[in-house]
């Protein structure tokens, strides 16, 4: 009797395997397809030199000590960031009283050297680094789907 129930269980397992043999892939083929991230995503930081009041709050709140204040030629303190340390917590953008620091949805930047990831104030103020793709990617948005778990829609 045990043998028969065993056989039924094995057939059920194989049936489950066969059921999933229809391709319904959840993986994103990254460089060809790129996920468009939602607003409020904490990616790379944008720094506005004009709005900055040189208060150093960002450097004090930074839990990873990624932000460091540099004294410029005009004797004023300005933040510079080291992305090798940054944990993208967004505290600096939250605490900034004038909104000189804000987060963007950019996240997929690759560097050749570790030193390239250190941004002194002048480089930090120039703008956010842009990702480079081998060919023009197709942007998609990920959505939660009841049946499938995840679903991707084209932008």
């Amino acid at each position: 009797m045990g043998l028969l129930t065993n056989l039924v269980d094995h057939l059920k397992a194989i049936g489950t395997g066969l059921k999933y043999l229809i391709p319904r892939r959840l993986t994103l083929m990254y460089p060809e397809y790129v996920e468009k991230l939602p607003e409020g995503y904490r990616g790379y930081l944008r720094y506005d030199n004009e709005k900055c009041i040189h208060c150093s709050l960002c450097a004090r709140i930074c839990p990873a000590n990624a932000i460091k204040m540099y004294r410029g030629g005009d004797k004023k303190l300005r933040p510079g960031i080291n992305y090798t340390r940054c944990i993208f917590c967004g505290f600096c953008a939250d605490i900034c009283p004038t909104g000189a620091l804000e987060y963007t949805t950019i996240q997929d930047i690759a560097y050749e050297k570790l030193e390239d990831q250190v941004y002194p104030p002048e480089k930090f103020a120039k703008g956010v680094p842009q990702p480079v793709y081998p060919e023009k990617p197709i942007f998609i948005i990920a959505k939660v789907d009841e049946e499938r778990g995840l679903k991707y829609d084209r932008v």
């Binding site: 999933y20 043999l21 229809i22 391709p23 892939r25 959840l26 993986t27 083929m29």
Partner: peptide
């Protein structure tokens, strides 16, 4: 490929 498809992956590509 079969293992990848059942596990909702791409496999060798």
């Amino acid at each position: 490929k079969i293992a990848a498809i059942i596990q909702m992956r791409y496999g060798p590509y």
